[in-house]
């Protein structure tokens, strides 16, 4: 047992020396002309960012519509936005404030022209239709969140097709 252990140690030491030699050779080479490739982006993080951008646009459209009756709709989108931002790793959360937290309550991306209820309804309908296709390959927890958001958007689309 003891001799095996010594042999192992010796072998390990020899390998260690060999590894150090290889590393030393590598360190002695000139630096490559291009920087090492960056880590590929996490598809789930990319999707969350995409969803966040979509929610910010939707909230901006609701803000520009200017009807108090649409406020609950906007607030639900803001809740979606907050939850999506919460799913991002801390270091990747965008520094921009949420639209509702700006002093005027109006996001900087607010469209100049007021939007119609019909266009909001169409937007909600398109968003709801997109959600089931966004569930492929994402974590179970994110799939559930997206599905729930889609259900809310489907209800929005129906509500906006009726007199407010």
């Amino acid at each position: 047992m003891r001799s095996v252990s010594r042999r192992s140690l010796l072998r390990g030491g020899a390998l260690g020396v060999a590894a150090a030699t290889v590393a030393g050779c590598a360190a002695g080479r000139p630096e490559p002309s291009h920087p090492p490739a960056a880590e590929p982006p996490d598809p789930e993080i990319m999707l969350i960012r995409q969803l966040i951008a979509g929610k910010e646009r939707t909230i901006a459209l609701y803000s520009s519509a200017g009807s108090g009756k649409l406020l609950p709709f906007r607030q639900r989108h803001e809740a979606h936005l907050a939850e999506l931002r919460r799913r991002l790793p801390r270091e990747t959360v965008p520094a921009s404030p949420s639209p509702s937290s700006s002093p005027s309550g109006t996001p900087t991306t607010t469209p100049r022209e007021p939007v119609s209820v019909r266009s909001l309804r169409d937007l909600e309908r398109e968003s709801a239709a997109l959600r089931p296709r966004q569930l492929d390959g994402v974590s179970p927890a994110l799939a559930q969140l997206i599905a729930s958001i889609g259900a809310c958007e489907a209800a929005h689309a129906l509500a906006l097709s009726r007199p407010l």
Partner: peptide, 14 residues
């Protein structure tokens, strides 16, 4: 559900 009672939750099912 909305057709029966016009109420909307932000996170249905949750």
């Amino acid at each position: 559900s909305y057709g029966l009672r016009p109420e909307i939750e932000a996170f249905p099912g949750m």
